[in-house]
């Protein structure tokens, strides 16, 4: 479904600060796959996701979605197939607008945005039902401004917004990293629930290696812009954090000890 061919992204090209963030990456993801992506700082995980989302123009390579070349499509145009949740809870929502207004903006993703009413009665009922699924009581706060919500509530809302129109690709960039452990766990559970949809392919970046192995169907490890490990199925089920560590050290020739990666 998603096909990434020889993708390369270079920052500050032609300067002394030149940095190859993603180097000749080839990957194919199928619908229904839940892929966790791990790797140290500067491994190219976020850059890869930003290239897929259209945030960054790529230097080389092709990105196909359902066979369609979307490499040069602007971000807002490919957004119709892509849902995103960011690490920073403030990035996913409009803080000065109400919960229902935010949901309405996300809900009208693939519809024309003219002078129709921003929210219809029927839609409000639908939003209420969807919000009730989150189990955070937000269904009773439709008219509250998002700025009043906690980080966890915002991430939950952003997740809902990212999937309220079923995307083909769901991109999660360490979306629980800024939350306290209890809230992070809740948001992760919610992520699992929402990503169950067999039409969606989910890519989730995490710094928690145990989490990367526990959740999803496939795990990718990146280092210096390259994919150095790609496991799924039985191989992944047998994988432990210790084995993952030694694999990393062998393949990258460096140690993870100094990195931000959590070894839990």
């Amino acid at each position: 479904m998603i096909q990434i061919v020889e993708l390369t992204k270079i920052f500050d090209k032609g300067t002394i600060n030149e940095k190859v963030a993603v180097a000749n990456v080839n990957l194919t993801f199928a619908a229904g796959e839940f892929v966790t992506i791990i790797g140290g700082n500067g491994a190219g995980k976020s850059t890869l996701l930003n290239c897929l989302a259209g945030n960054y123009a790529v230097d080389k390579g092709i990105i196909r979605l359902d066979g369609k070349d979307i490499t040069n499509l602007p971000e807002y145009k490919r957004a119709r197939w892509i849902g995103r949740v960011f690490q920073d809870p403030s990035l996913g929502t409009a803080y000065d607008m109400t919960i229902e207004e935010n949901l309405a903006i996300a809900y009208h993703k693939n519809k024309s945005r003219g002078l129709q009413p921003g929210i219809r009665k029927k839609e409000r009922q639908f939003f209420r039902e969807k919000l009730a699924m989150l189990g955070l009581g937000l269904e009773n706060r439709l008219k509250d401004k998002v700025g009043l919500l906690s980080g966890g509530q915002r991430q939950a809302l952003t997740l809902l917004m990212a999937t309220i129109v079923t995307p083909r690709l769901l991109l999660l960039d360490e979306h629980t990293a800024a939350l306290d452990p209890v809230t992070a766990k809740k948001v992760l559970q919610l992520t699992r629930k929402l990503a169950e949809n067999k039409e969606i392919c989910t890519l989730m970046i995490t710094h928690n290696m145990q989490e990367a192995l526990d959740i999803g169907t496939r795990t990718i490890m990146m280092h210096n812009g390259r994919v150095i490990l790609d496991i799924s199925g039985e191989e992944r089920e047998k994988m432990t954090v210790e084995k993952l560590m030694s694999q990393f050290e062998r393949k990258s020739g460096s140690s993870l000890a100094n990195d931000r990666m959590l070894l839990l």
Binding site: G83, M97, G118
Partner: peptide, 28 residues
């Protein structure tokens, strides 16, 4: 009335959070 249409919503959100607006498929 305009600020409560779909287009009005898009306009208000643009001032709030352009990243979210583009992620929602709006040409900011």
């Amino acid at each position: 009335l305009f600020l409560q249409t779909r287009l009005g919503f898009a306009l208000r959100a643009t001032g709030d959070n352009e990243i979210m607006v583009r992620a929602a498929g709006i040409n900011s």
